[in-house]
Amino acid sequence: MNVVRNLVIGTIAAIVVTALLLVVFLGEPARMKETTNAQLGESIARGALGYDAYCGGCHGQRGEGLAGIYPPLNVKDMWSDREDIAFYGTLEDYVQLNISAGHPASRMPSWSVEFGGPLREDQIMDLTNYVLNWQGPQPPGVRLELAGPEPTKPPQGTPGVVVTTPEAPTGEGDSAKGEQIFVQSCSACHGASAEGGSLGPTLVSADQAAKDDDFFRETITNGRPGTAMPAWGPLLGAQDVEDVIAFLRSRQ
């Protein structure tokens, strides 16, 4: 064992370690900034997935809202009312609060686990970051029609889709068609097979089965005041409502 050789190599290695530490130290501010940006990007991307699961059913896949029922989120002055109510927090706080605690006197439910909802704090933050990403200029080339394959087509009622006016049903309800409509319009809240979801109750329980068709017709067409269930009358034709009921009956 060569003592002197060990000490010389050790000293050189120690100098190299120190020099590397210094170099990395100088690069740290840039690295931290990049990491923080990437973390915000990841949060927005997660928020987008959360939005599709929880929010898009009402506020529209593209945040375009539902005229007269659910406000659009992709507009500039969406959050300007916070000044009217003496809210002193930041815009981010305000959006976060609206999602967490819901909006009094509107159909917006409280989403945070803190207020009985299904979402954790970090999920609310992701949604907030995603929703706020609509503020400010949007890139060219955003297409309103939905991405990709057919089943992700927009729920009926989004701008650009012809709205059928209510008319008498043309026949018996068709449960296969009803399923399609259900998946598009109802499943976001009531679950993919009507078993109930984060927001909407189950529609397949014995209780629900005992209710008559008129109850369902009324609820789907005009909504349920005091709950998050909107009126689908303006969006679905009478035949569509029959189809959905037929589908529900087939599940019950």
Partner: peptide
Amino acid sequence: AMVSIRIWQRELKRVDIK
């Protein structure tokens, strides 16, 4: 498999696979 890419939001793109 079908892959669809859409410009979705500011600095955000959506990718679907079917």
